[in-house]
Protein backbone atom coordinates (compact mmCIF):
# COMPACT_ATOMS: atom_id res chain seq x y z
CA UNK A 1 0.00 0.00 0.00
CA UNK A 2 2.80 2.41 1.04
CA UNK A 3 6.34 1.89 -0.16
CA UNK A 4 9.24 4.03 1.00
CA UNK A 5 12.48 3.44 -0.85
CA UNK A 6 15.91 4.67 0.21
CA UNK A 7 14.63 7.88 1.72
CA UNK A 8 17.11 10.59 2.65
CA UNK A 9 15.94 13.70 4.48
CA UNK A 10 17.96 16.48 6.05
CA UNK A 11 17.36 19.67 8.00
CA UNK A 12 19.81 22.11 6.53
CA UNK A 13 23.05 20.22 6.87
CA UNK A 14 21.84 17.76 9.48
CA UNK A 15 20.92 14.40 7.98
CA UNK A 16 17.91 12.97 9.84
CA UNK A 17 17.03 10.01 7.58
CA UNK A 18 19.84 8.15 5.85
CA UNK A 19 18.32 5.70 3.41
CA UNK A 20 15.12 4.46 5.01
CA UNK A 21 13.08 1.79 3.17
CA UNK A 22 9.87 0.25 4.40
CA UNK A 23 6.52 -1.06 3.23
CA UNK A 24 3.08 -1.06 4.76
CA UNK A 25 0.51 -3.49 3.41
CA UNK A 26 -3.24 -2.99 3.38
CA UNK A 27 -4.86 -3.87 6.71
CA UNK A 28 -1.62 -4.04 8.69
CA UNK A 29 -0.52 -2.29 11.82
CA UNK A 30 3.15 -1.49 11.33
CA UNK A 31 5.14 0.16 14.06
CA UNK A 32 8.38 2.11 13.97
CA UNK A 33 10.14 2.20 17.28
CA UNK A 34 13.24 4.14 18.17
CA UNK A 35 14.74 6.47 20.73
CA UNK A 36 14.36 10.25 20.88
CA UNK A 37 15.78 11.86 17.81
CA UNK A 38 15.94 8.64 15.79
CA UNK A 39 13.98 10.29 12.96
CA UNK A 40 10.50 8.85 13.51
CA UNK A 41 8.61 12.14 13.24
CA UNK A 42 10.83 13.17 10.36
CA UNK A 43 9.72 10.06 8.48
CA UNK A 44 6.00 10.70 9.08
CA UNK A 45 6.34 14.38 8.22
CA UNK A 46 8.06 13.47 4.98
CA UNK A 47 5.33 11.00 4.05
CA UNK A 48 2.77 13.73 4.79
CA UNK A 49 4.51 16.19 2.49
CA UNK A 50 5.88 18.67 5.02
CA UNK A 51 9.50 17.82 4.28
CA UNK A 52 11.13 17.35 0.91
CA UNK A 53 13.41 14.34 0.67
CA UNK A 54 16.83 14.90 -0.89
CA UNK A 55 16.67 11.40 -2.33
CA UNK A 56 14.39 8.39 -2.35
CA UNK A 57 10.89 7.54 -3.44
CA UNK A 58 7.48 7.44 -1.80
CA UNK A 59 4.70 5.45 -3.46
CA UNK A 60 1.14 5.01 -2.29
CA UNK A 61 -1.27 2.64 -4.02
CA UNK A 62 1.18 2.27 -6.92
CA UNK A 63 1.43 5.99 -7.52
CA UNK A 64 4.13 8.45 -6.59
CA UNK A 65 2.91 10.26 -3.51
CA UNK A 66 2.27 14.00 -4.08
CA UNK A 67 4.63 16.35 -2.24
CA UNK A 68 2.10 18.77 -0.76
CA UNK A 69 0.33 18.04 2.55
CA UNK A 70 -3.19 18.74 1.30
CA UNK A 71 -2.63 16.51 -1.74
CA UNK A 72 -1.38 13.71 0.48
CA UNK A 73 -4.60 13.92 2.50
CA UNK A 74 -6.54 13.81 -0.74
CA UNK A 75 -4.59 10.71 -1.79
CA UNK A 76 -5.93 8.96 1.33
CA UNK A 77 -3.29 9.30 4.05
CA UNK A 78 -4.19 10.92 7.34
CA UNK A 79 -1.80 11.85 10.11
CA UNK A 80 -2.34 12.15 13.86
CA UNK A 81 0.58 14.44 14.66
CA UNK A 82 2.96 14.42 17.57
CA UNK A 83 1.53 16.71 20.23
CA UNK A 84 -2.03 16.32 18.86
CA UNK A 85 -2.33 19.87 17.53
CA UNK A 86 -6.09 20.08 17.97
CA UNK A 87 -7.55 23.47 17.07
CA UNK A 88 -7.90 24.89 20.56
CA UNK A 89 -9.81 27.90 19.22
CA UNK A 90 -12.52 25.77 17.60
CA UNK A 91 -15.23 23.61 19.14
CA UNK A 92 -14.87 19.83 19.25
CA UNK A 93 -17.47 19.58 16.51
CA UNK A 94 -15.66 22.07 14.28
CA UNK A 95 -12.42 20.17 14.84
CA UNK A 96 -14.10 17.02 13.56
CA UNK A 97 -15.63 18.90 10.65
CA UNK A 98 -12.19 20.26 9.76
CA UNK A 99 -11.17 16.63 9.32
CA UNK A 100 -13.83 16.37 6.65
CA UNK A 101 -12.59 19.56 4.96
CA UNK A 102 -12.05 17.96 1.56
CA UNK A 103 -15.19 15.85 1.61
CA UNK A 104 -18.56 16.51 0.04
CA UNK A 105 -20.30 13.19 0.70
CA UNK A 106 -22.70 14.28 3.42
CA UNK A 107 -23.96 10.76 4.12
CA UNK A 108 -20.46 9.35 4.39
CA UNK A 109 -19.46 12.19 6.70
CA UNK A 110 -22.45 11.58 8.95
CA UNK A 111 -21.66 7.86 9.05
CA UNK A 112 -18.01 8.54 9.93
CA UNK A 113 -19.08 10.99 12.60
CA UNK A 114 -21.16 8.19 14.16
CA UNK A 115 -18.14 5.86 14.02
CA UNK A 116 -16.05 8.47 15.79
CA UNK A 117 -18.72 8.82 18.49
CA UNK A 118 -18.81 5.04 18.94
CA UNK A 119 -15.04 4.97 19.41
CA UNK A 120 -14.95 8.10 21.55
CA UNK A 121 -18.26 8.61 23.36
CA UNK A 122 -16.62 11.40 25.37
CA UNK A 123 -16.29 13.56 22.30
CA UNK A 124 -20.02 13.39 21.67
CA UNK A 125 -20.68 14.72 25.16
CA UNK A 126 -18.34 17.63 24.52
CA UNK A 127 -19.25 18.61 20.96
CA UNK A 128 -19.90 22.27 21.67
CA UNK A 129 -16.97 22.67 24.03
CA UNK A 130 -13.85 24.47 22.88
CA UNK A 131 -11.13 21.92 22.12
CA UNK A 132 -8.61 23.90 24.15
CA UNK A 133 -10.50 23.02 27.32
CA UNK A 134 -10.24 19.24 26.79
CA UNK A 135 -7.92 17.10 28.90
CA UNK A 136 -4.78 15.66 27.31
CA UNK A 137 -6.41 12.28 26.79
CA UNK A 138 -9.51 13.82 25.28
CA UNK A 139 -7.37 15.90 22.95
CA UNK A 140 -5.62 12.75 21.77
CA UNK A 141 -9.02 11.19 21.07
CA UNK A 142 -10.08 14.29 19.20
CA UNK A 143 -6.88 14.24 17.15
CA UNK A 144 -7.62 10.62 16.20
CA UNK A 145 -11.29 11.29 15.53
CA UNK A 146 -10.41 14.27 13.38
CA UNK A 147 -7.99 12.15 11.34
CA UNK A 148 -10.66 9.47 10.87
CA UNK A 149 -13.02 12.14 9.53
CA UNK A 150 -10.70 12.60 6.55
CA UNK A 151 -11.68 9.04 5.61
CA UNK A 152 -8.08 8.24 4.70
CA UNK A 153 -7.24 4.55 4.42
CA UNK A 154 -3.76 4.82 5.87
CA UNK A 155 -3.49 6.39 9.32
CA UNK A 156 -0.10 7.70 10.46
CA UNK A 157 0.14 8.06 14.23
CA UNK A 158 3.00 9.86 15.95
CA UNK A 159 3.39 8.81 19.58
CA UNK A 160 -0.30 8.78 20.44
CA UNK A 161 0.40 7.56 23.99
CA UNK A 162 2.87 10.33 24.80
CA UNK A 163 2.17 12.10 28.06
CA UNK A 164 -0.92 10.09 28.97
CA UNK A 165 -1.64 8.37 32.29
CA UNK A 166 -0.93 4.60 32.23
CA UNK A 167 -4.62 3.70 32.19
CA UNK A 168 -5.22 5.95 29.20
CA UNK A 169 -2.19 4.55 27.42
CA UNK A 170 -3.88 1.15 27.38
CA UNK A 171 -7.09 2.75 26.09
CA UNK A 172 -5.19 4.36 23.24
CA UNK A 173 -3.72 1.03 22.14
CA UNK A 174 -7.14 -0.62 22.39
CA UNK A 175 -8.50 2.11 20.17
CA UNK A 176 -5.73 1.56 17.64
CA UNK A 177 -6.96 -2.03 17.31
CA UNK A 178 -10.51 -0.84 16.87
CA UNK A 179 -9.45 1.62 14.19
CA UNK A 180 -7.85 -1.23 12.28
CA UNK A 181 -11.10 -3.17 12.68
CA UNK A 182 -12.79 -0.30 10.82
CA UNK A 183 -10.71 -1.30 7.81
CA UNK A 184 -7.84 1.14 8.23
CA UNK A 185 -4.15 0.49 7.79
CA UNK A 186 -1.94 1.97 10.48
CA UNK A 187 1.66 3.16 10.61
CA UNK A 188 2.39 3.75 14.27
CA UNK A 189 5.42 5.56 15.65
CA UNK A 190 6.05 4.92 19.32
CA UNK A 191 8.59 5.17 22.08
CA UNK A 192 6.47 2.84 24.16
CA UNK A 193 8.00 -0.11 22.35
CA UNK A 194 6.45 -2.78 24.50
CA UNK A 195 2.88 -1.74 23.87
CA UNK A 196 3.54 -0.89 20.24
CA UNK A 197 4.98 -4.34 19.53
CA UNK A 198 1.96 -5.86 21.25
CA UNK A 199 -0.51 -4.19 18.93
CA UNK A 200 1.51 -4.32 15.70
CA UNK A 201 1.87 -7.05 13.07
CA UNK A 202 5.29 -5.94 11.90
CA UNK A 203 7.91 -3.59 13.22
CA UNK A 204 10.92 -1.55 12.16
CA UNK A 205 13.57 -0.28 14.50
CA UNK A 206 14.95 3.12 13.59
CA UNK A 207 18.30 4.24 14.98
CA UNK A 208 19.85 7.58 14.04
CA UNK A 209 18.18 7.66 10.66
CA UNK A 210 18.81 4.04 9.75
CA UNK A 211 16.48 1.04 9.89
CA UNK A 212 18.49 -1.44 11.92
CA UNK A 213 15.94 -4.23 12.34
CA UNK A 214 12.68 -5.27 10.80
CA UNK A 215 10.38 -8.23 11.10
CA UNK A 216 7.26 -9.67 12.68
CA UNK A 217 6.40 -7.75 15.84
CA UNK A 218 6.29 -10.92 17.91
CA UNK A 219 9.75 -12.00 16.75
CA UNK A 220 11.23 -8.60 17.48
CA UNK A 221 9.62 -8.53 20.86
CA UNK A 222 11.16 -11.94 21.66
CA UNK A 223 14.65 -10.99 20.48
CA UNK A 224 17.00 -10.69 23.49
CA UNK A 225 19.06 -7.92 21.88
CA UNK A 226 15.97 -5.84 21.25
CA UNK A 227 14.70 -6.55 24.72
CA UNK A 228 17.91 -5.23 26.19
CA UNK A 229 17.92 -2.05 24.12
CA UNK A 230 14.24 -1.15 23.94
CA UNK A 231 12.30 -3.25 26.40
CA UNK A 232 14.65 -3.13 29.36
CA UNK A 233 13.20 -4.15 32.69
CA UNK A 234 12.70 -0.50 33.50
CA UNK A 235 11.21 0.14 30.03
CA UNK A 236 9.94 3.70 29.99
CA UNK A 237 6.19 3.53 29.71
CA UNK A 238 4.77 6.51 27.89
CA UNK A 239 7.61 8.98 28.46
Amino acid sequence: MLTVTDLHVSYGGIRALKGVSLTVNQGEIVTIIGANGAGKSTLLNTISGFLKPIAGELRYRDKVLPRKPDRVVKAGICHVPEGRLVFANLSVEDNLLMGAYLRHDRDGMAADMEKVFTLFPRLKERLAQSAGTLSGGEQQMLAMGRALMTNGDLVLMDEPSLGLAPLLVQTVFDIIREIRALGKTILLVEQNAYKALDVADRAYILEQGHIVREGAAAAIKADPAVRAAYLGTDSKAGG
Binding site: S48, G49, F50, K68, P69, D70, V73, K74, C78, H79, P81, L85, V86, F87, M98, G99, Y101, L102, R146, A147, T150
Partner: peptide
Amino acid sequence: KAAALMGVD
Protein backbone atom coordinates in the same frame (compact mmCIF):
# COMPACT_ATOMS: atom_id res chain seq x y z
CA LYS B 1 0.52 22.48 10.09
CA ALA B 2 -2.60 21.01 11.64
CA ALA B 3 -4.74 22.78 9.05
CA ALA B 4 -2.63 21.27 6.28
CA LEU B 5 -3.13 17.84 7.86
CA MET B 6 -6.87 18.31 7.34
CA GLY B 7 -6.33 18.84 3.63
CA VAL B 8 -6.37 22.64 3.74
CA ASP B 9 -4.24 24.19 1.00
